[in-house]
Amino acid sequence: MKKALVAALLIIISIPMLIAVAAMPPHGDADSPVHTHVSARYIEHGEEEAGAENLVTGVLLNYRGLDTAGEVIVIFTALMAAFAVLITHPGRGEESGPTTAALDPEPGTEPESDSKAPPPISPVVSFMVRLLTPFTTLFAIYVILNGHVTPGGGFQGGAILGGMFIALTIVLGEDKVRTLLPRRAAPWMQGAAVFAFVAIGVIGAATTGYFLGYPTDASLHLVRELMMVVIEIGIGLGGAAIFATIFLQMEAE
């Protein structure tokens, strides 16, 4: 009975979806909306207008810069929401940022108290993580800094950095890895993407009159690239810090 219901429901839901897919313009159709609206301009003038060889980055940081700034703020807000759920006792609040740190009466009194002996780490995994960490870091930096030329950018590189941080935490233990994300600097790192966007946006507003405006003059393309790289670094560091803090917080619970 239940299976029949599920099957019926799936069929009912899939019919409009299949109809919608059938109504979509065929692949490569030159008259489809994708090709007749803004993308032609992006492809033709993207490199000189947006200043990024990688068109995706040009769209993300320049044409749709405000959109990406909003996205970054959404991620930061998600961190706040995650903390609102994760922090259940105030003694652990000090690593989460200014809002909860204010509620914490005595920061730094509790952290070492609950050292329930963790299981020994496999030497194989430990060795592999330590062996690959320099390469992973290099790759993450490459992905972040090269985002305006090749596929990649702050979001991807930040995910790599964050994943590496989590692997290192598992292998080396929280205390050693903590030096990478000091409690004092953590809130600033978590907000790095938002700060970078606002800073570059304000610089743009001061120089061109538009928030997130980039200099369009061809002689200033290095400045434009520098502005993009600053945003990419901000997104990368901020993303990594957010991943890492959520993981540390969940581990602490």
């Binding site: 496999s122 194989v124 995994v125 592999m128 690959l132």
Partner: peptide
Amino acid sequence: ALVLLNGPTIGHA
């Protein structure tokens, strides 16, 4: 090289 190093490590873990 990465695949050869990572695959066995993950299986082991």
